[in-house]
Nucleic acid binder design. Structure first.
Lengths: 250, 250
DNA sequence: ACTGGAAGTTCCCATATATGAACCAGTGGT
DNA sequence: ACCACTGGTTCATATATGGGAACTTCCAGT
């Protein structure tokens, strides 16, 4: 609606994702040179971006960092999940992730990494397509069918591996199965060689934020017990977290 | 330069500071009603703000949180200081703070709180006037006189307690004394009843970021040994941190 | 010294934004 | 029912931004 504001915010997202960008990358991002100047100047002036004259790279500035610390929309959730996540990673030995849903993407808000040297590279703040991940499908299952339909139909869903499901109708069926089984899986649908089991934790109705918990592991460390063997520990962790938040154990 | 971008960013700062704001507060902040609409809509749409229809409050959104995690401008510094700060707080029993300088303000980037129930309320991300705090004066001492003069003369410096020094000339003299003594103090210049001793850690030339370390305590827990007794432990901590960063111990 | 590429600047005008004022709607108090 | 207050909307228009293209630096490679 307000073009330049939208653009400035989109640029922050872009730079956050890239780590650092050159002027030309900003232009390639879709902002014409002459407009990019003014915008970059404004953002550097106000402390939202840092510009190094040496390297000629633009990076996020201190204001960007500071604002992250002021956000407390899910602090309670992360705190409540902390202990259960510690227990889960030590029991299972695989990476445990807590994510919330935003639009059709899941955003990791807490991670406990597997002690194995071979593990998935994921980091807090990372944003992934919900239709292609286990935790994403667990999150989608907290929404109504019509809501899932609306959200997924709005854009083309990328196919990330040969297992990725991209038809909305089929995703709706899968999500329905998740509701009945109680857990969602990702069987190399996001990254080849990577499997994941996830359970929904809280719905948007309950806490204002939909969140889910997952365990992610390389294909090689799974056997015939996958994914069922992972469900009970995830359920226990969920009960523990929901109890810590003062919600019904489910 | 780009008004609406600047405004959007300033609004994020404002909301971060306030925690949550109502429409009217945004208008009072200086954005006319009709403009505020478009801007708030844009920012909510893009996920930078959350709006609750129930409470009619605007808060920071997930994107604001996410971007904070992408900033790594001082991660090395915070990591390098971590152990020394732990040691310092356990030795002194008073709140230890790490801050960097931005303009004429110091921003806390790490804190170890005193175990005493009575302690200063400070939090990571907090931004205070450098001329009125010990850590701020330690930070200013890493700049040249002319730079300090330029920065402080640009705006009126607020008087926060009856001890606050607000004349630039006198601050220049104080900062010069800090350079010779090696430490800066704040003797109830920021908050009545609050004293602080600080040392500069690294200069902007060395690491691109000026940082300082401080110990803050209530007046009542100080005696005649203040502030000198705090200097040696701060010096040791500084050496330890600088060593961890691969810099000369000073 | 020459060349190519990226950064940064300038100009102008079509287009989008900003804004004051008037107006509508919902809520809570009396 | 009425009033006061806040949130939200609409409109017309003065003003600021956006963007294409040509131009200037600056720098690194040859």
């Amino acid at each position: 609606m307000v073009k330049s504001a939208e653009r400035a915010l989109a640029l922050l997202d872009f730079i956050a994702e890239q780590g650092q960008v050159r002027f030309q990358e900003v232009v390639d991002f879709g902002i014409p040179k002459s407009s990019a100047h003014g915008l970059l100047h404004t953002m550097v002036e106000s402390g939202w971006l840092d510009y190094s004259e040496q390297t000629r790279y633009y990076k996020l500035g201190l204001h960007a960092w500071q604002i992250g610390h002021s956000y407390d929309g899910h602090r309670g959730l992360v705190d409540a999940a902390s202990e259960a996540m510690d227990i889960l990673v030590s029991r299972l030995g695989e990476t445990v992730q807590l994510a919330r849903l935003e639009g059709i993407e899941n955003v990791y808000i807490a991670i406990r990494e597997s002690p194995h040297p071979m593990r998935m590279a994921s980091s807090v703040g990372m944003r992934l397509h919900a239709h292609a991940t286990g935790i994403g499908k667990a999150l989608l299952s907290t929404l109504s069918d019509s809501e899932v339909d609306t959200r997924l139909s709005a854009v083309a869903l990328p196919r990330l591996t040969e297992n990725t499901v991209t038809e909305v109708d089929e995703i709706l069926r899968i999500v329905d199965r998740v509701r009945h089984l109680g857990f969602a899986v990702d069987d190399e649908e996001f990254i080849a060689g990577c499997r994941c089991v996830a359970v929904p934790l809280v719905s948007e109705d309950e806490t204002g934020v939909a969140a889910a918990l997952s365990v992610t592991m390389p294909f090689q460390r799974t056997d015939a017990s996958w994914p069922h063997a992972f469900y009970p520990p995830l359920q226990e962790a969920r009960s523990m977290i929901r109890k810590a938040m003062g919600l019904a154990p489910t």
